[in-house]
Design a protein around this nucleic acid. Structure first.
Lengths: 158, 158
DNA sequence: CGGAAAAAGTATCCGTGTAAACAATTTCCT
DNA sequence: AGGAAATTGTTTACACGGATACTTTTTCCG
């Protein structure tokens, strides 16, 4: 018997120069990467943003909350919520240092560290070259190019 | 006098192998691309999603709403809202064809077409190679690699 | 010193996008 | 034919993430 063959007939849509826009292509690929991530981690409570925060704190204990936010391109207001949730879950510790009582230093608890260790392998495997349809070489090229992107603004004045 | 030099002192944060994950890198770059887009179009009512929808409809008049949604990786529930808003704004027309009265066919109004024409140039200029710090060649390479990405799932069974 | 300005983080409200349940229509199968 | 199943789009309820305004603390000068 043949496989189901679902959705074989899908209309072809003309996109024009849209496929030549990095903005559009980044959006498309990022959405699909997210979907792949959630499929791979379905059944667990691992979310990309949260896990990334824990990952970075594992490498940088005592990091300031604001520095973490800027590094991961997360806005302060959202970082507050993320941190509250992860602290509530028992994965990280908030500490207000005496030398600057405005700031908050973050570090992992034992549970947080264990959580990172437990999912570290799968986290890196999800988007491995073979899982995204690239060769090792292409994968490296892609990372290099993504790392080069700057998004500087070019003012309209001459 | 010297320039302001703000934010010169920014802590260095160790990211480890995070920078070797396409998922993470796609997320970082996409967020920055969005920011660049909104900066460029500040003062206008142009949003990436909406404009992309109008763009595709300009190239594919009479496209079905569902086909459009699948093409642009937009979920049906959200596409409904997008279409309602754009129809309200007078940019597109919804039409229920007699041969399948479940579906909705979309096409641009004159105002919608004019809107696309008015911002077409800037839309393509925003993320032009020079504005994202890449050479023409690198830009083409990046587009090719992004186009190759597949995000197939690899089941755990051997 | 002492007040103005800046910095860090938080609370509140809003926009974007999704999942799940639903209504309407068409197709499929016997 | 006629009822089950699939398809299409919408409604509703909610999660994610950001903008803005605010509180607390520190810094910056006079």
């Amino acid at each position: 018997m043949n496989a189901p063959l679902p959705r074989l007939i899908e209309d072809v849509v003309e996109l024009g120069d849209l496929t030549k826009s990095v903005g559009f292509m980044l959006r498309m690929t990022q959405v699909r990467a997210y979907a792949q991530f959630f499929r791979a981690f379905s059944g667990t409570d691992v979310r990309p943003g949260e896990f990334t925060v824990l990952w970075v704190l594992a490498l940088n204990p005592g990091l300031r909350q604001g520095t973490l936010a800027r590094t991961l391109q997360i806005k302060p207001a959202h970082m507050t919520k993320l941190v509250q949730r992860l602290a509530q879950a028992g994965y990280l510790l908030r500490e207000v240092p005496p030398e600057d009582r405005r700031s908050v230093l973050l570090s992992l608890t034992a549970a947080g560290l264990e959580h990172v260790e437990r999912h570290r392998a799968q986290f890196h495997d999800v988007h491995a070259p073979a899982h995204v349809g690239l060769s090792e070489g292409e994968y490296g090229q892609l990372l290099t190019l993504l790392g080069k992107l700057t998004f500087k603004d070019v003012p309209e004045c001459p």
